[in-house]
């Protein structure tokens, strides 16, 4: 470990922390400057029930809500309190499922989303890039053109249509897969076969829909990258020198073409913390996207902020990870 290496890492880590700090600060400020007042909105919702409330009761309700939202005191006081809570893992109670804390809601949703999206991102990245590389390298062969056409046909299908078609076809018309949920109702988490198989069966369709769309995107990107790299002088030179096709494809073409795709994968993994709203909605999958969707519809400010904070942290950590790992893939980027 040289000092330049350590300095490289320290610099990136500090940068990452700074980005997270600024991002979270903005998430803190935006709802506070927005014209809609969450307290007012909650009171109005309660009043809409049509009951008569005593003005004192309304005032007390407002005070209680203001305190619960952490909106009492000056902006500076709120900010300090917000960070104190955040650092001790407390994001306040969720309003829509009061009094459950936001943290515990996120904690139950996160593993589902993370598992689903991580696995499907990795599968689609690997398959898409491998096929894209082959198709770009053997561009004028029949099979590569067929794969290209399939990818071209799959890629532009709007995701929600793909998801619905899969759901209707494979869960309703031919009911091989469950219509929704993450596991069969009533099953307790365990490492037993029944639980795992139920989990896999439920995850299959959402994962398939994500993979089908994802593969198309990675494929098209990789094929273009490879077609460009194949035309590079060093590839021609190696070809003329009689270097074997295998070596040229993996060491000369793929290694160079894959560099931007590695960045893409890390970004995709960072976005896991956003959840996959449409997937989770269509397949009633209890992930972060679904949680965020409900939070928006019920005006659950603290939950929206909680999800946003996770997303900021996720993307920033992914970027940090690429920065740290990139010199391993590209010798032109050095730890300095």
């Amino acid at each position: 470990m040289s000092s330049t290496f350590l300095r490289y890492i320290a610099q990136r880590v500090v940068q990452c922390i700074l980005v997270i700090f600024i991002g979270i600060t903005i998430t803190f400020l935006v709802p506070r400057f927005s014209p809609t007042d969450p307290v007012e909105a909650a009171v109005n919702r309660a009043m809409m029930m049509g009951q008569y409330s005593h003005p004192d009761a309304v005032r007390m309700m407002k005070e209680a809500l203001t305190k619960m939202y952490g909106l009492d005191g000056t902006l500076g006081q709120q900010y300090i309190r917000f960070w104190k809570g955040l650092l001790s893992g407390d994001l306040g109670p969720s309003l829509s499922s009061f009094p459950k804390p936001v943290m515990s809601l996120i904690r139950t949703s996160l593993p589902w989303t993370a598992g689903l999206l991580l696995v499907s991102a990795i599968i689609s990245w690997t398959v898409g890039n491998l096929l894209g590389c082959l198709a770009g390298y053997f561009g004028n062969q029949r099979w590569s053109q067929v794969i290209g056409m399939i990818a071209m046909a799959l890629h532009p299908i709007p995701y929600y249509i793909m998801a619905f078609v899969l759901l209707v076809a494979l869960a309703y018309v031919i009911p091989v897969f469950p219509i929704g949920g993450a596991v069969d109702i009533g099953l307790k988490p365990s490492l037993g076969w029944i639980y795992i198989s139920s989990l896999l069966r439920h995850a299959f369709l959402p994962a398939l829909s994500l993979v089908l769309i994802g593969v198309g995107g990675w494929f098209i990107g990789m094929r273009t990258l490879v077609t460009n790299v194949v035309a590079e002088d060093y590839v021609t030179y190696a070809k003329y020198a009689g270097v074997s096709d295998r070596t040229i494809m993996y060491q000369y073409v793929m290694k160079n073409a894959l560099l931007p795709q590695i960045t893409g994968l890390a970004m995709q993994i960072g976005l896991i913390f956003n959840g996959a709203l449409i997937t989770e909605y269509v397949f009633s999958y209890p992930g972060l996207g679904y949680l965020a969707y409900n939070a928006i519809f019920t005006g659950d400010y603290s939950l929206i902020m909680g999800v946003a904070i996770f997303s900021i942290v996720g993307v920033s950590l992914a970027v940090l990870l690429i920065d740290l790992a990139y010199p391993l893939f590209d010798p032109r980027v050095k730890y300095q």
Binding site: D233, Y234, T236, A238, V243, L259, D330, R332
Partner: peptide, 28 residues
């Protein structure tokens, strides 16, 4: 042998020269 045009880009940027020598040698 053929040294093609483009002296700046005849070598694989992500491969050490030793490996390139290895590839070119092993080809024959």
């Amino acid at each position: 042998s053929y040294i093609l045009q483009g002296s700046m880009s005849l070598l694989n940027p992500v491969r050490k020269i030793r490996k390139t020598f290895w590839d070119f040698t092993r080809a024959h």
